[in-house]
Simulated scan of single mutants.
Amino acid sequence: MKLRWRLTLSTLALVAPLLLFLFSHDLYNLRSFLIERESTRLRAQAKPIIDAELLNRTFDEPTPSNCQSTGYRPYLS
């Protein structure tokens, strides 16, 4: 085999795994970024609803609205 082909093959053997690793690493980072961004957006959308529900809740006496959401039935004598 000529020297030119040996150099080409050895260079490809060194560069191909490096490129494959860099591509997979970038793909993993992109996937993580997109998932993190989506979860942040969903949390931001849900926060006002969750806060309003928690702030409007009373803990003294169970009301019908509290009983419906939790399934709790107060003892009636």
Rank of each mutant, 00 (worst) to 15 (best):
L12Q: 11
R31Q: 09
E36F: 02
M1L: 10
R6A: 07
G71V: 02
A46F: 07
F23R: 09
L76G: 01
Q45C: 00
R6H: 04
P62A: 10
L27D: 08
A46G: 05
G71D: 07
N29R: 15
Q45Y: 04
F59I: 05
L54D: 00
G71I: 05
W5F: 04
H25I: 03
F21E: 02
S10P: 05
L42V: 11
P62S: 08
P62E: 05
V15S: 04
R57S: 04
L22N: 07
F23H: 05
L42D: 00
L19E: 06
L14A: 14
G71P: 09
L76V: 15
L30Y: 09
S77G: 12
V15R: 04
S24A: 13
R4D: 13
R73M: 10
T8L: 15
I49C: 03
Y28L: 12
S65W: 09
A52W: 08
C67L: 08
T40G: 06
Y28C: 08
V15K: 05
M1R: 05
S24M: 05
P48E: 07
L3W: 03
F59M: 03
A46R: 06
K2I: 01
Y72G: 03
I50Q: 08
R73T: 14
H25R: 08
T8C: 06
S69M: 11
A16G: 03
P62N: 07
R41E: 11
V15F: 01
L34T: 08
E38N: 01
D51L: 10
T63S: 14
E38S: 09
W5E: 13
D51S: 09
I35W: 03
D51R: 11
D51F: 04
L22C: 12
L76E: 15
N29H: 12
S24Y: 06
L3P: 07
I50F: 06
L54A: 15
L9N: 09
R57A: 11
A44Q: 15
Y75D: 02
S10Q: 14
